[in-house]
């Protein structure tokens, strides 16, 4: 089942879809977030703050707004 990254319950997931304009997609994929990418949630800041992700052995911080456009499938 696909959920937006902001609603992911577990920690590990695979990016499946990115909703949003061409630039948003391009930006995310330049930073290594594109369909098929495996991610691990490391934490997040309160009040709809950004999410810390582990992607390809490095850490990315993704704001809430962008994260809600990233649809992921949880790995259990």
């Amino acid at each position: 089942m696909l959920v937006p990254l902001t609603h992911l319950k577990g920690k590990k997931a695979i990016v499946r879809e990115i909703h949003g304009g061409v630039t948003a997609k391009q930006r995310l994929s330049d930073m290594g977030l594109l369909p098929g990418t495996q991610i691990k949630v490391l934490g997040n800041a309160p009040f709809k703050g950004p999410i810390r992700l582990e992607v390809k052995h490095s850490e990315l911080v993704v704001g809430w707004g962008l994260a809600s456009k990233i649809f992921v499938e949880e790995i259990v």
């Binding site: 630039t23 948003a24 930073m31 810390r52 993704v62 704001g63 707004g65 962008l66 994260a67």
Partner: peptide
């Protein structure tokens, strides 16, 4: 709205 935050930590 600003473009969303994405940053390498």
């Amino acid at each position: 709205e600003p473009v969303g935050l994405i940053m390498e930590m």
